[in-house]
């Protein structure tokens, strides 16, 4: 079986984020990037299916040169090969544009299973998975916490609210978006990293995928006009001073609450 895993590279969770000068997104120069947290769990699920039997794991990512790093990491963890859609014409795509690019890649690959993250940690859209499933006309489910494969179908436990679960069965080909915490994600071993150097990363352009004019900023139906720190509103009373002062004030408050 063939599994396609869609990976997005996003700013590192500990990166200091600032709004860029045109105000429409964050400043991406000189910050660290990593594989989107949700996608690492999706990749780990794919690698576990591979470890348990016969499967080829192909990873795909859309993004600029820096994305090579994410793909190398995925190959080091055990993915077999990578596809990098690296093209300025893809920049500024909205979720539907990204889904269209991934659909073109998926059509050429014909995977039995597509695994994605539930959501990307940057835009928080949680959109590309179900959109891609629609474009490919395959069944999907979202927010998977557990996947079980049984002759040609997958049984998925998906997360609902407050700790409840829903069990859903899907036939293949299928697309599943994965929630965080689904598994313990492996690290790329030294051996894995060495082996990854020989694994192929194919690059594709928007034109290669015959999508010129259909994706990218000009085709986007969703435009982020402005990104800004959330308004403070009422907000907290801020306690300032030396650690000793701060702690003194906190203890005073806790006493007032009758908790001491």
């Amino acid at each position: 079986m063939k599994i396609l895993v869609c990976l997005k590279q996003v700013p590192h969770a500990d990166a200091r984020l600032d709004v860029r000068s045109d105000g429409t997104w964050i400043q991406e120069e000189n910050i660290k990037f990593e594989i989107n947290s949700y996608d690492t769990y999706a990749l780990e699920e794919a690698l576990r299916i591979k470890d348990a039997g016969e499967a080829e794991v192909v990873v795909v990512s859309i993004g600029p040169d820096r994305v090579t790093q994410a793909l190398r990491t995925a190959l080091g963890m055990g993915a077999d090969r990578a596809i990098h859609v690296n093209d300025p014409d893809a920049e500024g795509s909205d979720s539907l544009g990204i889904a269209k690019i991934l659909a073109a890649v998926a059509r050429a690959e014909s995977p039995d299973l597509i695994l994605m993250g539930l959501m990307a940690d940057d835009g928080n859209f949680a959109a590309v998975g179900p959109m891609l499933a629609q474009l490919l006309d395959v069944p999907h489910t979202t927010t998977a916490l557990k996947l079980e494969k049984a002759n040609g179908s997958f049984t998925v436990e998906r997360e609902l609210e407050g700790g409840a679960l829903e069990v859903v069965k899907l036939g293949t080909p299928a697309l599943i978006t994965v929630q965080t915490g689904t598994n313990q994600v492996r690290y790329a071993s030294l051996k894995g990293i060495m082996a990854a150097k020989k694994k192929p990363i194919d690059t594709r352009s928007v034109a290669d995928l015959e999508l010129s004019g259909q994706v990218g900023a000009a085709a986007a139906k969703v435009r982020i006009e402005k990104v800004y720190p959330p308004p403070k509103g009422e907000g907290a009373e801020m306690v300032e001073g030396s650690t000793q002062d701060v702690v003194g004030k906190l203890v005073g408050k806790i006493k007032e609450l009758g908790l001491l």
Binding site: F125, H140, T143, E161
Partner: peptide, 22 residues
């Protein structure tokens, strides 16, 4: 909600429409 985020983006794609979440 879990059913909303499962269905809504797919509906958008089916109609080649814009989608904005949460």
């Amino acid at each position: 909600t879990p059913s909303g985020w499962d269905l809504a983006p797919r509906v958008a794609a089916a109609h080649d429409a814009a989608f904005v979440s949460d």
